[in-house]
């Protein structure tokens, strides 16, 4: 029996090693191939046919993140507040909404892309546009934001709500002054991770914003591109070096977002709970 246990331990270690090697290999490969091709001009320069740049993609990515977040964050948080604070997170309705959000969170992004394409590009007649893409992305990250906000709200101790009500505090004030601040750490982390998904999404955008890599979009109704799309485009158009360099930029961006998520989450937790815990 003891032999079996120690064997199990080594199997686990081996599996961990495989995961780590795979991760390190991907990151190392991207960095080795990409860093040498990075230059200031490639990232921020003006796009020319013989010297493509990432400027249109940077602008596009920022706009997509901003619009998707502006739409999805308030709606997501408000929905979660309703589910947790006004329905006690119980009952048939909440169950149905729970199943719906879980299903929506699990749908492949290309399906969202197709939806965005049929609605915004075709039915609304917008053609390819950043706005259509951003709204589609907002719909895509909405379920995740609702779920994680719900969980953050549920983790707030019931005693705090009771304590506030017992002082004659209204429900609204209790939510805004007691519940939301206590849950803020988890909510902010969830938002930043959702932004990470927006940054790295490609399938949705191929079908909605049109992959116009050579022009900085002038309006939100213009077609455009994003960093993830640029990788796809360059790789498909005989520019593997540029593709690798773009991958480095995207990788760093996503890494920074993840670090930021952890850091802000901790910061808020510390300011709410002080040195205790």
């Amino acid at each position: 029996m003891r032999k079996l246990y120690s064997a199990l331990k080594y199997v686990c270690i081996a599996c961990l090693a495989i995961s780590l090697i795979a991760l390190v290999a991907v990151v190392a490969y991207v960095l080795i191939n990409g860093i040498g091709n990075l230059s200031f001009n490639l990232v921020f320069g003006e796009y020319k046919p013989d010297a493509p740049t990432l400027l249109p993609a940077l602008v596009g990515t920022l706009e997509l993140v901003a619009i998707a977040a502006i739409i999805a964050v308030p709606i997501g948080i408000a929905s979660a507040i309703f589910l947790v604070e006004y329905t006690n997170n119980k009952g048939k309705f909440v169950k149905i909404v729970g199943i719906a959000t879980e299903t929506l969170a699990g749908i492949p992004s290309i399906v969202y892309g197709l939806f965005g394409y049929l609605i915004f590009v075709v039915a609304f007649g917008w053609g390819y546009s950043l706005l259509g893409g951003a709204i589609t992305l907002a719909i895509m990250i909405l379920p995740t934001i609702v779920r994680s906000t719900q969980e953050s709200l549920l983790s707030v101790q019931g005693g705090l709500r009771e304590g506030a009500y017992a002082l004659g505090t209204s429900k609204v004030r209790t939510i805004f002054k007691i519940v939301l601040p206590s849950a803020a750490g988890g909510i902010v982390t969830a938002i930043i991770l959702a932004i990470g998904r927006v940054v790295s999404e490609s399938a949705v955008l191929i079908l909605t914003i049109g992959m116009v890599v050579n022009k900085v979009p002038e309006t939100l109704m213009a077609p455009g591109t994003s960093l993830a799309l640029d990788i796809y485009y360059f790789a498909n158009h005989g520019r593997p070096d540029e593709a690798a360099a773009t991958a480095v930029v995207l990788l760093i961006l996503v890494m920074l977002l993840n670090l930021l998520a952890g850091w802000i989450g901790n910061l808020i937790k510390k300011s709410t709970y002080g040195d205790a815990k």
């Binding site: 101790q157 705090l160 304590g163 017992a166 002082l167 004659g168």
Partner: peptide
Amino acid sequence: RKNVGMVFQKPNPFP
């Protein structure tokens, strides 16, 4: 509730 205060079994100071 402002006139009738309550103290709970488990101390519940706000964070």
